[in-house]
Write a protein that binds this DNA or RNA. Structure first.
Lengths: 147, 147
DNA sequence: GGATAAATGGATATTTATATCTACTTTTTA
DNA sequence: TAAAAAGTAGATATAAATATCCATTTATCC
């Protein structure tokens, strides 16, 4: 339902949210989230351009969330790397129904908007806050072990 | 949100539903739905294996829906070519959380199930029945023009 | 039965997404 | 200010999805 790239982006952001205010290097994030390191750099750059993460070069540099985790929705992250776009016109682009979507694409678009809404209403903060019966987030090491 | 292949499959089925009981050849369906003809044959074969369409070889052969359009859900069609699968285990496959999904994949899975439900509750029949404000289905020719 | 029309199946080509590698620039700190 | 750590960017490789081609089989009509 989401691309591999989007999945990686979400893992990375979840990882950063787990260690807030802690600058993590790309290789560090890669090893924690089990994402190919060289690919992750690209993903992190995309997240940077979307202003979701801040990067710091040089010794002791790394990545940080650009704003609190509960102000970042899953949709923000997904859209940064692989946008979910509503269907705005029939892909068969026929003159006869101009701007209108045919019933088929209307339904498909409904589904897309449903998904958008679901991702928009879920924040990265929720993922790491572990309320109630939530399970451990992808086996990350404890904060104390990392810093 | 769905693959190109799934989109093609839906167009083909919608097309067949528009001309019920009429055997349409693959090239005919291709031209109506604007799907590459040689690719569509493969898609139609997949639909055949899933028992959604029946095929007839030879002169005056072609394809037909295997059952009434209102007994075919969009999910049936999508699953025939490109199944939507719930997440059953964390893709990082870590021992620590066994069968449990972490909060991230829990959310992603919620979205997948939401989509499944939406597609399961929409039938191909609905698409072509044009109730109320529905718009023309992808500019198909009138029935009288085709047979 | 022969000619024609149509689906089927296999091999192959093309495109896109995913992943890797390497050289380069920036920043920190000793 | 030099060395090391880290992000940046571009070129390239690999894998997967999409698309095409062609030979074969099946059915229908005359």
């Amino acid at each position: 339902m989401i691309s591999q790239t989007a999945e990686y982006a979400l893992r990375a952001v979840a990882c950063l949210a787990t260690y807030p205010k802690t600058s993590l290097t790309a290789p560090r994030i890669a090893s924690i989230t089990k994402v190919p390191a060289s690919y992750l750099s690209k993903v992190l750059q995309a997240l940077g351009k979307a202003r979701l993460v801040k990067s710091q070069r040089g010794l002791h540099g790394g990545f940080l969330l650009a704003r609190p985790a509960d102000k970042i929705s899953l949709l923000d992250v997904i859209d940064a790397v692989d946008p979910i776009r509503p269907i705005t016109q029939c892909p068969l682009d026929l003159e006869t129904h101009g701007k209108n979507l045919c019933p088929l694409h209307d339904r498909l678009n409904d589904a897309i908007m449903l998904i958008q809404k679901a991702y928009r209403n879920a924040t990265v903060g929720e993922l790491v806050s572990q309320t109630g019966k939530s399970k451990p987030l992808c086996d990350m090491p404890d904060r104390k072990k990392i810093s």
